[in-house]
């Protein structure tokens, strides 16, 4: 059973993820050699403003994601743990 699951995981996603990781790595590492950072540190005051934070409301954001995950079939890409939802 576990082997079947791993096989499906492998065939469906691993190759896609590997390509994704490779692309990200290339853009993050080798890309640096030919392209220079175009936004200098002193130009980032707006981005550093707390209102721009992706996790502005810490555990409240996690709760919001949990509410959706318990009631929708979609899962993942939300940064939450999942499991044991107490939602039925």
């Amino acid at each position: 059973m576990k082997r079947n699951m791993l096989k499906q995981l492998s065939s469906l996603f691993v190759n896609k993820l590997a390509i994704m990781v490779l692309l990200i790595s290339c853009s993050a590492i080798s890309g640096c050699s030919s392209i220079k950072p175009w936004v200098q540190p002193y130009e980032r005051q707006n981005l550093a403003d707390p209102i721009m934070s992706a996790s502005r409301h810490g555990i409240a954001a996690s709760h919001a994601a949990h509410v959706y995950e318990a009631r929708e079939a979609a899962r993942g890409a939300e940064g939450t743990g999942g499991g044991g939802c107490g939602c039925n």
Binding site: M1, M5, L9, L12, V14, L17, N46, L47, G76, A77
Partner: peptide
């Protein structure tokens, strides 16, 4: 200086 983009990909296998 005003825009941040992010992309996230997650695979889940349950058994």
């Amino acid at each position: 200086s005003n825009l941040i983009a992010s992309f996230e990909l997650e695979a889940i296998a349950s058994n």
